[in-house]
Design a protein around this nucleic acid. Structure first.
Lengths: 240, 240
DNA sequence: CGCGCTACTGTGGTCAGACCACACGCGGCG
DNA sequence: CGCCGCGTGTGGTCTGACCACAGTAGCGCG
């Protein structure tokens, strides 16, 4: 073991993780105040803050000012935010090629569709609500894409796997700016929106019918089709 | 928009992300010094540090003391570390049920095996090296499991999808302590190790033969088999 | 006695300044 | 010419201070 030089903020991070693992604290509980943590662990308050900042960005805690039961750092464990931030930054820093992100999304969407189709009575209520919202006529591309993201996320959540849902949301966020840029490159957005609407309904119908094979195929065609049209198969730059 | 109260550290985070997206900085480049960043953005140095700490934990930068070209904060973009930390913490905070993590891993391993089997000449050199290392007789369960992780990771990396590889490494880390605990619950570890060795070779052989269907089936059996034996199908506690 | 307002207390958020250990690199010394 | 030492800039940490904020306790008034 290289025996890290025991950075103070890491001490705090490990302390909180230990408390979580041992069940001393859980979702909804308050962490000790920054000043108390600093005193307990023998580190400066700034080091405590650095650790809490990490936990906050990762979606583990929520911090609020003021006093009372709702103030301070509270364990929330909402993975989506942290996953989105991580993937978005990694894509920005070129740690993740765009193509790999798209491919991974394809893989997960495919699995989600198959899993849902295999369920006895998949909960498609949320998906149907979004489908109806997407029928509105006066949607801008950004609004439409936001609903599109909501639909795919609703399907992922219905599949019951929180990890897959969080990763999919993160992947989606990571390439959001690229997708929006791609939408601008599409000639007739109205046509494309109609095509996407039809594809969405076909996918949901196939899932409802329990036809996993068809659902998978439709999902693959839906995603690859859009990305090809938006020119996302080759590397693009988001802003310039 | 709720218009966040513009927290100072977030300003720094967005500034760095912008620089990354616009290509002003990239892998290998140095960030401005903490003091310079603080002065440029009009925030305190502690706020800069909180943002950099987040970037460091997420695997975006590496910081070193001293002077010279290798000192300071350097963009590295190694996603594995950040993904592992995120997933591990979320599991610890009960944001991710263990079952979902296992299921997601299964899904990804399955896809990796199929993708590799579909390649013309998959690069299995790394996998073979690990296979040989696992043949050693005097391996403790922990050592064996570490090699096992290395093998699965090698396969994921060979598949060429960095996102999938990073996520798989992260999932593996997240449940590491549970897996180790499960190993202790297995009656005859020597037998189990032999079974695992045989399964590994069968998987790699199926991939080399280009038999995707067999490879998928073997992978599923391999993983579910071990998790069942280790009692990881129901919720367990890592330490008590 | 009861209601409402105020001041207090404890929280995170931020900044400024100080000190340390460290590593590079330049310049002087042998 | 080579080597050693100190200067300089870096992150790492701590301290202390101040702010805004929210809940609460207590006081004063009706």
């Amino acid at each position: 073991m290289p025996e890290q030089p025991a950075r103070a903020w890491r001490l705090v991070l490990e302390h909180v993780e230990r408390d979580l693992l041992d069940g001393r604290i859980g979702p909804g509980d308050r962490l000790a105040s920054e000043r108390d943590l600093a005193a307990d662990l023998g580190v400066g308050r700034s080091s405590v803050r650095e650790a809490l900042r990490v936990l906050e960005v990762m979606g583990l805690i929520r911090t609020s000012t003021g006093s009372g039961p709702q103030s301070g750092a509270i364990v929330i464990a909402t993975p989506t935010g942290g996953m989105s931030t991580l993937l978005r930054l990694q894509v920005a820093a070129q740690g993740f090629p765009l193509a790999d992100v798209v491919q991974t999304r394809l893989l997960l969407e495919d699995a989600v569709a198959a899993a849902l189709a295999g369920q006895d009575s998949p909960d498609l209520a949320a998906a149907h609500r979004v489908l109806e919202a997407m029928d509105a006529d006066a949607l801008t591309p950004d609004e439409f894409l936001a609903l599109d993201a909501q639909l795919h996320l609703a399907l992922a959540e219905s599949s019951g796997n929180t990890v897959v849902a969080a990763i999919m949301a993160g992947l989606r966020t990571a390439i959001e700016s690229y997708v929006q840029q791609g939408a601008a490159a599409i000639d007739d957005w109205g046509d494309m929106a109609d095509v996407l609407r039809a594809e969405h309904r076909a996918i949901v119908d196939a899932i409802a019918a329990g036809d996993a094979t068809t659902a998978r195929a439709l999902v693959r065609a839906h995603i690859t089709g859009y990305y090809t049209a938006a020119g996302l198969t080759r590397s693009t730059r988001p802003t310039d």
